[in-house]
Design a protein around this nucleic acid. Sequence first.
DNA 1: GCCGTTTTCGGCCCGACTGTTTTCAGTCG
Length: 577
Amino acid sequence: MKNFDISSIFNKMADLLEIRGENPFRIRAYRKAAFNIESLGKDISLFSKEDLMNVPGIGSDLAGKIEEYLATGKIEAYERLKTQVPESLTELLGVPGLGPKTVALIYDRYRVKDIAELAKLAKEHKLLGLPGIKDKTEANIIKGIEMLQRASSRYPLGRALPVAREITAHLSEHAPVGRLDIAGSIRRWKETIGDIDIISTSRDPGAVMNTFTRMQGVREVLMKGPTKSSVVLKEGIQVDIRVVEEDSYGAALAYFTGSKAHNIRLREIAVRAGMKLNEYGIFREKDDKKLGGRTEEEIYEVLGLQYVPPELREDTGEVEAAAEYSLPRLLEPSDIRGDLHVHSDWSDGNMKLGELADVPLSMGYRYIAVTDHSKGLGVARGLNEERIMEQRKAIAALNRKLRGTRLLAGVEINIRSDGSLDFDEDVMKGFDIVVASVHSGFKQSGVRITERIVKAMRNPYVSIIGHPSGRLIGERDAYEVDMEKVIETAAETGTAIEINAYPLRLDLAEPYIRRARAKGVSLAIGTDSHNRGQFGNMAFGVSLARRGWLEKKDVLNTRDLKPLLATLSAKRRKKSS
DNA sequence: GCCGTTTTCGGCCCGACTGTTTTCAGTCG
């Protein structure tokens, strides 16, 4: 897809225009278009000019530039811009604290072209004496360059969330906080996190700032004001805190939860209705009368919108839906009746079947599916035909003792490199449930791996495709599978697609969940638990499903035991015929 | 450069903190 190429050119153009000091609204138009192209979810090269102009933020000029790029691989205006301002200057904008004005200033004087040259100038104190630059600014530029070179860009949610919870626990205990919440992209359960945002109320905000900036694990205090501070932790994550009045708490929580794009939409609606929205509340424009802000619900109500759950606040259609009060009734954690992807110590888990039998009760479930690896996955002690038959008997014996809950006899079967499966039909037909997953040959071509997965999905006994993209966030990219084709095949065959809730997987990714939902595909949330502590990861799976706009009916394991088994065998019959 | 229940011009989201000023510009989120 050319989407990313085009959006990154528009972003670069915005940077260059900014350094040139052009009209800020023109610059914003480029950025907005870039953002919308990235979140399009469809291949932009298939768009007609009319389609393009229907994308918000794209008018006839930008549509023309996109067409020009698709036809020629170039945008003349961009090429021209690069002859006026060196493209490499845009990397200087990445230095924290360094903006377009200062970059332009330094460039005009010294013709610096990249970060290495800038660092050299700063260390030689050549920046001193430029208008507005004294020793502190120069020191900050040096510090900013170091930070940039050290920073890993985003952190997986699964790493950031525990850190954020530790900080809020510390503040609750050691600072005079009233209300206290994690906001930002963590509250939206976005899969990766740029920084941690915390907001609170307090009778003594200064004391909260002190406790916050002196926490253990703080490497550096970036700023400290009376109500707002920022620090960088030893692991490199930036944490921002903001203390607000009780009366503004809802407005502040909404503001700092974002996303930025969602907030801007809300403010535009406010302005059009003669109101003003900021982190203190929502106000009537003419006399500044406060109309709400104590709770988030108040804000949405005053704006005439349905309350938007944090997971949906991405400006991907939720504002329009909220205006019509037609948001989906999102899946709730309490809707989950069981876990469909669990390993025992028969393969690479560490729990005995007897311990697994207790899990449904402790989690409030009706069932869990025991889905150990099959023989092809040697490293995980995958089970052969003989062992799987033995395990089935052991499960059946346990089930005879269970009241109101049940272990499902399943398998996470290996999809071999040619799309065939580890077991033959006579073994397959005895499972309650079959998760089929790719565990090897990640580097196969897109065509080949897609064919491989599609072939597995056509097997009548395969109930679910496990961790469908194979990604490990921040560690391993997804294999080159054509997910659109997988979703189509799922719709056609009735195979469910897994939402793997393991925090470093979070696989299926959210845009595809929405596509799957649109096609009527059933999704199955599984934790892929290998020990007792991992069952709680269901929360990640549920939130990811919510980000994908899923309702209870879209999720396979919201069904009670009998309807679930009936659904599974109906799908099997449909596929066989 | 985009956009329109203020519709083809004249708007375009809003506030805190820092470092430089001597009332504010730049940057960030």
